[in-house]
């Protein structure tokens, strides 16, 4: 059983590869963060601009949906294909989302007062 922790010194090549990888990753994070801020700004903007409610509601919901996906894939690392069991995790997340959406649809359509 491999319970001993092995410590390995990084080679120069490995170090440079990691450095480059981290830089790319950081750039992606910052870009996504900027997109998030922009989307949030848009959401506030359509409200402040006082458009028709029939325009504001779907647009805000759409933006929210986009943000959720962005959050999941970039900040919560679901885009990290190499992480273990990512396929299983995606399946569970999206299956849960589909079920939750069905309930949401139900409560809006076939429950009446």
């Amino acid at each position: 059983m491999g319970h001993d922790t092995q410590v390995q010194a990084k080679s120069k090549k490995q170090y440079e590869y990691d450095r480059h990888h981290n830089a790319v990753h950081m750039r992606k994070q910052v870009i996504n963060f900027a997109i998030m801020i922009f989307l949030t700004f848009l959401a506030f903007a359509v409200v402040v601009a006082d458009f028709s409610a029939y325009f504001i509601k779907p647009v805000i919901l759409l933006l929210a949906g986009v943000q959720v996906v962005l959050q999941l894939y970039s900040f919560m690392h679901m885009d990290d294909k190499k992480a273990s069991h990512m396929g299983v995790i995606s399946t569970f997340v999206w299956f849960g989302a589909v079920i939750a959406f069905t309930m949401f649809l139900t409560f809006l359509t076939i429950i009446w007062w």
Partner: peptide, 13 residues
């Protein structure tokens, strides 16, 4: 103002 059907939905979901 509540709705008894909500229980039925939650229960059967």
């Amino acid at each position: 103002g509540g709705n008894t059907i909500i229980w039925e939905h939650l229960f059967w979901i």
